[in-house]
């Protein structure tokens, strides 16, 4: 081997070693793509890197794709931290894909609402509601929604859009209106069947929900409030309403993947995410409700329907326990597909 070749090889090995050490020093966060990633990057990752000097790399995908990948990866996870919906996080926990959190390393958790602690393994970061919204330009001038029952009214006939990937919201609302609850959901079946004439189409994702609103195909929708506010910011005349019974709360949660080698950094990432200032910024971007009681959102944001700024307000919304939702969703889906979609 010539002397020059030796030097080239040594340099290559050195570069590879530096690359590996840098790769080990970054925190990998699993999240949804688009606005979700951009918001988390701007609000949480920037502050985290500023404090720790550790860069953050996001890997994105749908809720189910990421869950399946995590299951396949097992003890060698692709990411250190995962953000997902709270009831799906329950499945991560049930399958030991999340590790138990050391709350001593998350001091900002002390300022969070009790609802933020979803389990010893995952923490709620922010909340939103699934609630009715309608296109003001496509519905009669005097049309209004005060109660969930208004979705059963004549003006909504053939105009309603519902999610079919997760019918839990309308199922639980129907159960509540019929005197039941999530566990005792079957009491709401007669009401659900009476809702069929109102339904125009079902949506399968955030993208199709927005498309149905944008094109006016479903001028009334049970919609994720964050998506509704995003569309309003793009000039679509949409009105979000939280009925007197409350909106169905959704909580997006965070957990540390079992097998992560960046446990301390991951705890710090969660701590940063719960920092009141970071929570304010995150909620301003997403138009959601903070989980930190110390976070003060702007008056404009606080005035939006579905934005919760106190533990008391959160109690007035409809909250489905994660375990109940995760366990009953398959049963709900079978019933919903059989009786509502056809």
């Amino acid at each position: 081997m010539t002397g020059r070749l030796k030097y080239v090889l040594a340099a290559a090995i050195l570069l590879a070693a530096v690359d590996v050490s840098q790769a080990q020093q970054k925190l990998v966060v699993s999240i949804w793509g688009g606005n979700w990633r951009d918001g988390a990057k701007e609000a949480i990752a920037t502050e985290f890197t500023k404090r720790t000097k550790i860069p953050v790399e996001f890997i994105t995908g749908g809720t189910m794709d990421r869950l399946t990948k995590a299951k396949m990866a097992g003890a060698r996870p692709e990411s250190d931290v995962t953000l997902t919906t709270s009831h799906v996080a329950y499945l991560y926990v049930a399958d030991k894909l999340f590790q138990q959190l050391d709350t001593a390393k998350i001091p900002n958790l002390k300022q969070a609402y009790p609802e933020a602690v979803r389990s010893p393994y995952h923490i709620g970061l922010y909340s939103y509601v699934f609630t009715p919204a309608f296109r003001t330009d496509l519905m009669p001038k005097d049309f209004k929604i005060e109660s969930w029952k208004d979705l059963w009214g004549a003006p909504v006939k053939g105009k309603l859009g519902l999610p079919d990937f997760d019918p839990s919201h309308i199922i639980v609302v129907s159960a509540l209106l019929s005197g039941g609850d999530a566990q005792n959901w079957k009491v709401g079946i007669p009401m659900l069947e009476k809702l069929k004439p109102s339904i125009k189409a079902f949506y399968q994702s955030d993208a199709t929900s927005q498309e149905l609103i944008k094109t006016g195909e479903t001028p009334v929708q049970v919609i994720l409030s964050i998506n509704a506010y995003h569309q309003m910011s793009q000039g679509i005349p949409l009105k979000v309403v939280v009925p007197k019974e409350g909106g169905v709360v959704g909580i997006d949660a965070i957990g540390i993947n079992a097998g992560s080698k960046m446990t301390d950094a991951a705890h710090e990432f969660i701590n940063v995410a719960l920092d009141p200032k970071v929570q304010e910024k995150l909620c301003d971007i997403y138009k959601c409700s903070p989980m930190s009681s110390a976070a003060h959102v702007s008056p404009q944001l606080a005035a939006l329907p579905g934005i919760v700024t106190s533990a008391e307000q959160l109690k007035h919304q409809i909250l489905i326990p994660d375990e109940v939702r995760a366990k009953l969703l398959p049963e709900w889906k079978v019933w919903f597909t059989e009786h509502m979609t056809r």
């Binding site: 189910m64 869950l67 499945l91 079919d164 990937f165 997760d166 125009k200 189409a201 079902f202 949506y203 399968q204 199709t208 149905l212 195909e217 995760a326 969703l329 398959p330 709900w332 889906k333 079978v334 597909t337 979609t341 056809r342």
Partner: peptide, 21 residues
């Protein structure tokens, strides 16, 4: 189809994958 016209692949996704079954 907007959830009103289902083919087998949609049913696999709807009933199986998105409800973790």
């Amino acid at each position: 189809g907007g959830g009103k016209v289902l083919m087998i692949s949609n049913l696999v996704y709807l009933q199986g994958l998105s409800s973790f079954n």
